[in-house]
């Protein structure tokens, strides 16, 4: 069998084999439900992740603040550098 003959037979057979495949009529509803469910799950996961990150950052900040004794400076250690302008508190 020559290649042009084989090519022609292959085309014909692939056409017939493909025609015999009949997709499900309700496929769209099924697939749409899947992609919507996955989208909802993805969004929920993002929200949970954001909440967890914010909660961890808050907890860390509160823990650090809680470790500082009352009256100690929280941010700067030691006296303010020379020439630094310290604003007066409002009266």
């Amino acid at each position: 069998m020559t290649h042009p003959e084989t090519e022609e037979r292959l085309r014909r057979s692939l056409g017939v084999l493909a025609e015999a495949v009949r997709p499900d009529d309700g496929a769209y509803r099924r697939v749409q439900a899947i992609w919507r469910r996955r989208e909802r799950r993805r969004r929920l996961l993002m929200v949970v992740l954001a909440v967890v990150i914010i909660a961890v950052a808050d907890a860390l900040g509160l823990w650090l603040l809680n470790r500082v004794a009352a009256g100690d400076p929280v941010i700067f250690q030691g006296p303010a550098p020379a020439g630094a302008v310290v604003p007066h508190p409002p009266r």
Partner: peptide, 18 residues
């Protein structure tokens, strides 16, 4: 995606089968 589904789903299922 719906438009693509309408236009190409059948052909893609046949492609997957072949």
């Amino acid at each position: 995606v719906t438009r693509l589904f309408d236009g190409h789903h059948r052909q893609l299922v046949r492609l997957a089968a072949l």
